[in-house]
Design a protein around this nucleic acid. Structure first.
Lengths: 233, 233, 233, 233
DNA sequence: AATGAATGAGACTTCATTCAT
DNA sequence: CATGAATGAAGTCTCATTCAT
């Protein structure tokens, strides 16, 4: 369990005696985890303080000893889990191989993460509307990391010659693509369990990135770039 | 105004006397338009029945003569406007040209539509969460149309040899890409006006579709398809 | 009941049929009266919307059909009742007589009003803190009316030669005096009933206004005005 | 006893070591001062235990080692400061002079005190509602002292022949007058600083006490005492 | 003594929906 | 059909007080 494994494993077997700071952190974590679960299950809109504290097993007032505002917790949700996700993906992509292979690994690892933390998908999708601050932060982090990878690949000659600006665009396209695909192929509303992503998703993704959408007919794609039509110049 | 021009222009002179059905339809349309405006301006979450009826200039109770539920209206919103959008794009893509050129035209037309109907972007983005029924319907419609186009292109040899299943995947990727790009590059929060999409967005989109992400190094992309790593054994 | 006697006596004997506007005004009045009672009984601080609506016999939500905010109603309370009080006092002071006599009448009438509307005292006293807007409005109204009376008396030679500025000061002194006296002598916390003000209060008030506090020893008071000690000049 | 010299001499050099009782009293004083400041700044209603302890620099729980209840501290506030005020005024009124002169001095000294302890005004005004017990105690103290002064003046023939009961009434009138005047003329909401009271306030106050409100017309004011009108017959 | 986390009641306000007029 | 007043559940947040450490 990636997100919850952060607490110090409380030594031998003691459970009764905890320092004040530990109890504090524990409660905070209980609330955070409860929020993750509730948002994952019901969405941000239904993640009332009342429900979160009930899930965490504390009184409603306790919430406000740890978070200034309901929104504050909600805004922390995605960035925190997001970092977890990046860590997860990096661990799975440590190997060598071409950029194409590594991108495919990342793609797969992303779906694997969805299986491990099923709440993530919903949190990611809804955060844009319900936790904009956290969402922006997450997007910046992910997009930045992604863009770095692509630029590095470009330097190595493994990625086509996009400009830096274009790379930023690509990053957003790929993130968007992942988002839609995950919604389309990884959701299972009924029992929250995330099924394995089908093979043809992986292959389509790989083929698009490898060779583009269009068959090469009259030379290269670069030979005929899209140009603005209206507004001329 | 694309969306509202659909109503039967109620004859020449008549304005005072309307049949019951006409008055009926008129009020319904007033509510619908009001909802579109309110959601565009404030988002679904703030689109209370009270605000919608105020914008429409009718009493709150009137709402329930036309819609069983607030959610009912909200669910109709996107599919209705979505059809409008498709029509708009089709009109702009009537010309001949290669599939690549036409796809670029469609991409551009999409952003043009955002300029014409600034509410659309917000409605599209939020509908997934606030009007899931309508959202699914819209997605199905758009994805279906899109897939038809790609299959036709494939038949003509202008689109690479993706399987039908893969084409469905591609469609979602492209829709996702558009979605993220429109959010990233077409929003202008301050005054709701949508600015023109930058050139490098168009070029990056075109280049990805034309030649893929990766430089061709040792042959073709197809030569080294992505294969599942785990669960493969 | 001065305050509540404002509604049109609803015709013959009908109670069943009321126009919409009448029912509306009736509910509003119910809320207003309930607020008056609750504030009179428990004070502003305890006058929660919940208590007010319970007293009025309507649902809590109904409150907000009539007042934008709890504070809004509270701010209306004093000015409304205050006007009632002024009317009451004026009616009791219609007769002729010297200014001194009339002032004594007004003083007495004020205490009589406290008997009729026992809530007034508490509302007046607390409004300064809990309904500042309404309080300022009330004070201005009363002080203005009072100052007019004193200036008129001065013109007739029945009131000593105070400057306009000094009259304003006097007005506040007299209002303050009344306020403290009413609290000291008219309150009866236990059962809210206001007892008659003792004779020596009336006489002390009259004597102070008639001849000042100090015995005339060496001529007139004006001969030895208070002068600033510090700050020179 | 020589042996006792071994105890920590908390004399000159000692500051670090305080007896238990001293530390105790110190914390209590810190809380009291903090409360004074907070109430002066924000008013009783906003003077939560949390804010007071924060201002005092102690933990919330510490509060309840010194005061049984939040209300307990609030009730001590005014009487304590009130005694301070009386002391201040007495010091400033030590000189000889007629009663009239001394009353004027007291009046001035009162406003001077407001300048020295700007919190006092707010505490005085709000205590009636938020710390009734303390308020009553304060009023009794001040009224008692005031009444003694006036009776003494009467004995010396410098104050008119009021009965003891009437003197009590006068005392409340004068206290009320001061209260209203201080609110009207001494407040300066913006920066809490109290400005000097205008000259015409002093003069009006002096003139009323010296010669009453009404011009002597047909003899003496005493010749026509206020008599009850109603209930008299 | 001091600490500060935990508690839970209660406050204001919003809103979808109903229904008598 | 239109109206708009009435409803009551639910939501966020504050705060005095308690109590184990």
């Amino acid at each position: 369990m990636p997100t919850s494994a952060r607490l110090p494993t409380k030594g031998k077997l003691a459970r009764t005696k905890l320092t004040r700071a530990e109890r504090n952190e524990l409660t905070r974590q209980k609330l955070f985890d409860a929020a993750r679960k509730v948002v994952g299950r019901l969405g941000y809109a239904e993640a009332s303080v009342s429900r979160i504290t009930a899930e965490a097993g504390v009184a409603q007032g306790t919430f406000y000893n740890y978070f200034v505002t309901r929104q504050d917790l909600l805004d922390e949700l995605l960035p925190e889990i997001g970092k977890d996700m990046l860590r997860f993906i990096q661990e799975r992509t440590r190997g060598e191989g071409s950029e194409a292979v590594r991108e495919a690994d990342r793609f797969r690892a992303f779906f694997d993460y969805l299986k491990e933390v099923p709440e993530f998908l919903r949190i990611l999708n809804e955060a844009e509307l319900f936790a904009p601050a956290g969402y922006q932060q997450h997007i910046r982090t992910v997009a930045g990391a992604y863009a770095r990878l692509l630029r590095r690949g470009r330097e190595k000659g493994e990625v086509q010659a996009f400009s830096d600006e274009e790379i930023e665009v690509l990053v957003h396209m790929l993130m968007g693509a992942r988002g839609y695909l995950s919604q389309r192929y990884a959701y299972t509303d009924t029992d929250q369990s995330v099924t394995t992503v089908p093979d043809h998703v992986l292959s389509a993704y790989g083929k698009l990135l490898a060779g583009g959408l269009f068959a090469e007919q009259q030379g290269a794609a670069q030979a005929k770039p899209i140009r603005r039509k209206r507004g001329g110049r």
